[in-house]
């Protein structure tokens, strides 16, 4: 089966995006805590199925911790600062399900798959191609950053608390300049290789990825509709 048209048993990025947009309403306004919690659990399930269990656990646990902390603080005497922390926490906590779905999309979508899926949506290349490059380039820049950080440690100009407070702009310079020059060089090589292999604007690309909707997509879209209704109307 290897090398055949790739059909993975997992949702396509299009339905994942739809789901994400459907649950964006959780960030604003008035949503029942039970609904948010159900959403967090559902997103955790998605992460377990299609990403890593450890990631799912991390997010769900954080949510539970924040929720418990809020309610614990509410039992304490009413100090203004506590009020503030509780409310801030309750607002930030709502971002978590969106972060989870975002993590799912960004960590499991490959650039090729993304380009193929977006082409299906007739999204213009001027938008989908740079985004695909971000998906490709992100781990590389992360690696470069770790490397630069090690180099800074060895030179004694590392990202320690003291350094950042004492001369912040200089520390920023030490990070940004090598990161930029290294990334530009790598970016050039990446672009040259892609162009030499025919990446172009003129014609439509085909794909070895099978991006037709499968059962997971339909289930996910159903879930999106359900949660949308729950978030908006309940």
């Amino acid at each position: 089966m290897k090398g055949d048209q790739k059909r993975r048993s997992r949702p396509n990025v299009r339905s994942e995006l739809l789901f994400l947009l459907a649950i964006n309403g959780v960030l604003i306004g008035n949503v029942k805590p039970a609904v948010i919690f159900a959403l967090v659990l559902f997103s955790g399930l998605l992460l377990c199925l299609f990403c890593r269990i450890s990631t799912a656990a991390k997010y769900v646990l954080t949510y539970c911790l924040m929720f418990s902390a809020e309610h614990l603080l509410m039992l304490l005497p009413g100090i203004s600062l506590f009020h503030f922390i509780i409310v801030i926490s309750s607002v930030l906590r709502k971002f978590i399900p969106c972060f989870m779905v975002g993590c799912l999309i960004l960590e499991t979508t490959t650039p090729g798959n993304f380009l193929a899926s977006m082409q299906r949506l007739h999204m213009p290349k001027v938008f989908s191609l740079p985004f695909a490059v971000v998906l490709r380039f992100f781990p590389t820049v992360k690696e470069d950053w770790h490397s630069i950080r090690s180099a800074m440690k060895l030179r004694g100009i590392g990202l320690s608390f003291g350094n950042v407070i004492a001369h912040p702009l200089r520390t920023v310079e030490y990070i940004i300049v090598p990161l930029l020059s290294s990334s530009i060089k790598i970016g050039d090589e990446l672009s040259a290789a892609a162009i030499a292999r025919g990446l172009g604007m003129e014609r439509d690309r085909t794909s070895v990825y099978d991006v037709r909707f499968c059962i997971w997509d339909h289930l996910l879209m159903l879930a999106a509709a359900v949660f949308f209704v729950l978030i908006t109307f309940v």
Partner: peptide
Amino acid sequence: EVKDLMTIGIFATIYIVVKIIVGFVGVIP
């Protein structure tokens, strides 16, 4: 052209990575 789009993608990535690094400063709500 493709070359421009790739440049955009590359710089967007750098911008985002640096933003995330800065973001760790703002852990305190």
